[in-house]
Each structure stands twice: as C-alpha cells, then as structure tokens.
Amino acid sequence: MNRIVEKLNEDKKLLSIYFTAGYPNIDDTVVTIKNLETNGVDMIEIGLPFSDPLADGPTIQDSSTAALKNGMTTEVLFTQLEGIRETVSIPLIIMGYFNPMFQYGMEAFCKKCKELGIDGLIIPDLPVDVYHNEYQAIFEKYGLINVFLITPQTSDERIRYIDSISNGFIYMVSSASTTGAKSGFGDEQTAYFERIGNMGLKNPQVIGFGISNNETFTQATKYAKGAIIGSAFVKHVTKHGVKSINGFVDSIIK
C-alpha cells in the first residue's frame, strides 16, 4: 500500500509540511526531511524549485529563486534523495511544476521517484484531463499518487471528476489567492469547507494555503483530514535555520 494511503488511514489529524529543496542552503534538503519526521510531522512536500511558480506567494517564490541560485536542479534533488528510505518512513511528495518534469521525461521522472521511495506528486499546472488522458497510466505503473488541487471556484462537477480519478487525498486550497500565511479563516471559507465536506467524496481532503499556526491548523482540521503548512515554515527556516524545526512543529500541534 502507498504510504500516503496508509497515513490517511490513521486515526488522527495530519500535519503536512512543505519546504523548498535546497533552501536556505543547498545541502539542507535531507536534514530538513529528517528533522521534520523526528518532530512528528505526518507527511512532507518537497518543493522542486521553478523559475515561474505561479501558485506560490512571495515567500515561496523567493525561496525557490534562492534555491535555484544555490544550484538546485531536478538531478541534484534526486541525488540528494538517494537512500532517503533508509532513515525516513513517512510519506514524501514532490511538489513542482510540469515543465521541469516534462523536460526530464515524465516516465523517467516517475520511474526515478519510485526508485527513491517518493509516494506522490503535486503538479499545480497539470490539467486534470491531460493527466487522465496522457499520464495516469504512467503514475499507476510506478505506484505514484497524483494529488489535485481544488479551490472555492472549482465546480462541483469538476470536483467529482477529480475525486473519481484520485486515489489519495484532494488538496483543498483554502482561498483563490496564492500561498501565504493568514491569521484565520472567515465565514466564506468555512462555508466552502463545509460544502466540500458534505459532498461525500471518496478521497479525504487536506487543506492548504493560509495555515500558519495552531489556531488555523485546528480550524482547518475541523473540516478536513489534515492541513498543509508551507509559507509559515519557509519563513521560520529563513529566520532560524533548519535546526530549529522542533519549536515550529511543537507550536502547531501543541
């Protein structure tokens, strides 16, 4: 069974953390992954830096730019992840944009992910119908879960289509904006969370965008299986470095 599915079956609310590979320093990738698992994180999204990350807010955009300047590439990331499964057991997901994966070769990329022990991919700019028609068979061949994003503007019809071809979780974007920490969720977002929760989807939802502290984590997981924190964590390691991860995680799941 895929590690993502195993984790989703656990009787707990899940905390997933996004970080940018090769940031703040090129060699911080594996240290970050190990520290996150040690401190109780349930899943990790490894951000593959891209020069034009359209779905990301300024914090993650800046970290991607810095990581690229540090020398991070697809090949460097894959080299860093060699042997990661000797020490890390929680689900690992690569989040990146389609162009670098396409340039690498989509089947070659998926094959390498399987060899390294990657469990899934999040590709914000890969249309669901293109995935379904052209790439789903490749993902399934290598045992990878493709995680789709939905927003408050996604139609019920589209959500049900995404649900029908998904086999992990649905990434529920809390708002139509780019990524970034928010102070809390308003009535409009709460109504959206409730609407999706009442649809009876077969795949659990994990909420991302705007989760930054214990309050927003608690709010989000009232309506979903888990929550994803990205920008707030990137800000933390920018300021404090990757050796201070325990304090950040403790503040979320205290």
Rank of each mutant, 00 (worst) to 15 (best):
D42H: 08
G120E: 03
R195Y: 08
G180L: 09
D56P: 02
N39S: 09
R195F: 02
Q205Y: 05
Y131W: 12
T154R: 03
K34V: 12
Q219G: 03
G71F: 05
M43H: 09
V41S: 09
E37A: 03
A191F: 01
T216Q: 08
E134R: 14
I162C: 10
Y142R: 06
L116I: 09
K69W: 01
I123H: 03
K114A: 13
T87Q: 10
S64C: 15
I4V: 14
P53E: 00
V234A: 10
L126Q: 09
S212Y: 10
L149H: 03
S89G: 07
E10Q: 14
P204D: 11
I94S: 11
I150L: 11
A220R: 08
Y161I: 09
E75T: 07
F169N: 09
L54D: 05
V242A: 06
I252P: 07
E140P: 00
L77E: 01
I162N: 10
I93E: 07
M106C: 01
I44H: 05
T218W: 02
F139Y: 15
K69C: 00
E157K: 13
L36A: 12
A224N: 12
I150N: 13
G57Y: 09
S177A: 15
T65F: 14
F98P: 01
Y171C: 13
D27V: 09
H236D: 11
L144S: 04
Y18E: 01
T216M: 07
A108N: 14
G47F: 06
K222Y: 12
N25P: 00
G180T: 07
K12R: 05
V5K: 14
Y135R: 07
I33Q: 07
H132S: 15
D119G: 02
G197L: 10
L92A: 03
D129N: 13
L201G: 14
K114H: 14
A224V: 11
Y135G: 07
S212G: 12
N99E: 05
V76C: 04
L126Y: 06
G184T: 04
